[in-house]
């Protein structure tokens, strides 16, 4: 098992390397002088010369890449010339709201989609199943921000039950924190519910056709226990896989959701960085999100060991 963990860890190295090369190259391939692009429109000639020096732009591309990777390995993501702060510090300052949104959305989606998909699989072709399949096609066709506005309109503007925008850190009171995040969780969660419920339905209905389900029924196990203790548990691996695949979608959704709800996290930071043409920040955020994505998918793979005792590496 340790060998599996190790080999899985090693397999992320080329992925992370390609991500780093891509991010590195995209900025270098941009039209114009990268130092001028990074420095922004207010940079003086001296600033640009200093940036050129620090990035080694007068050296070969390979040399530049080695400097870039060397800095990256030390946790140095570069410096935002717009905010005049290290990018890593900026990310650390704003990661909290994003973690709150992402984790809450995942919990919400799993809590809604897994029971829904399981019940739909129990009666394939029934009303719940048809409702779910219709909803899941619709869920993939509606942009996150539209769901957000459709929630804001009645709940925040008409009834005034929930705040329209903003963010309160959990240290200022959990109730206030949650009340600001309920709408983002639901809005962003919709598409994951669609995705997860669909996979849960397919996976559970496959498990329900197995012999052990017939055996369980024959010995008189109750319907609920058959569904949740026998079928769902055996259907867990594909469901967890999709949770992992969904992380990339979730990150994209966070950018939109934070913008709509004016939440000062990494997503809105991405949009601001692009509008400010703050390239070191864009670069740092892309690296951060991609690494987070890889790390979560690594955890998902490792969780198979716990979920399915038949899997032995």
């Amino acid at each position: 098992m340790l060998r599996f963990v190790f080999s899985r860890l090693v397999s992320t190295v080329p992925v992370l390397l390609v991500v780093s090369i891509t991010v590195f190259l995209v900025l270098r391939l941009a039209p114009g002088d990268p130092a001028a692009v990074i420095g922004g429109s207010n940079a003086t000639t001296e600033d640009i010369a200093a940036i050129r020096q620090s990035l080694g732009l007068d050296k070969s591309l390979l040399h530049q890449f080695l400097i870039f990777i060397g800095n990256l390995l030390q946790g140095d993501l570069g410096r935002s010339y717009y905010f005049n702060k290290p990018v890593a510090t900026l990310i650390a300052e704003r990661v909290g709201p994003t973690l709150s949104i992402a984790s809450g959305t995942m919990l919400f989606a799993v809590a809604v989609a897994v029971p829904m998909g399981t019940l739909a699989a129990w009666r394939i072709g029934g009303w719940l199943d048809r409702l779910l399949m219709g909803f899941s096609v619709l869920g993939f066709s509606v942009p996150v921000f539209v769901v957000a506005y459709l929630l804001i309109m009645p709940l925040s503007l008409k009834l005034r039950w929930l705040p329209v925008q903003g963010y309160v850190p959990p240290s200022d009171g959990l109730a206030a924190w949650a009340s600001h995040l309920v709408l983002p969780w639901i809005a962003l969660g919709t598409v994951y519910v669609a995705l997860l419920a669909r996979v849960t339905r397919a996976s559970v209905s496959e498990a329900l056709a197995e012999d052990y389900i017939r055996t369980a029924r024959a010995k008189g196990v109750s319907q609920t226990a058959v569904l949740f203790r026998h079928a769902l548990v055996n259907a867990a691996v594909p469901i967890v896989t999709v949770v992992g695949i969904g992380v990339a979608l979730l990150i994209g959704g966070v950018v939109v959701t934070e913008t709509v709800f004016a939440i000062p996290g990494l997503g809105s930071m991405t949009v601001e960085a692009v509008l400010n043409r703050d390239f070191p920040v864009i670069q740092g955020l892309v690296l951060f999100f991609a690494f987070a994505n890889v790390a979560i998918n690594l955890l998902v793979d490792l969780s198979y060991l716990a979920l399915d005792p038949r899997i032995r590496y």
């Binding site: 992925v15 995209v26 990150i251 994209g252 939109v256 991405t270």
Partner: peptide
């Protein structure tokens, strides 16, 4: 594999930012 690790919208945003 490396390209797929970068969330699609984020990659698109970066490319638009760089290319105009």
């Amino acid at each position: 594999d490396g390209l797929m690790a970068i969330p699609a919208i984020l990659l698109a945003i970066t490319l638009v930012a760089v290319l105009g």
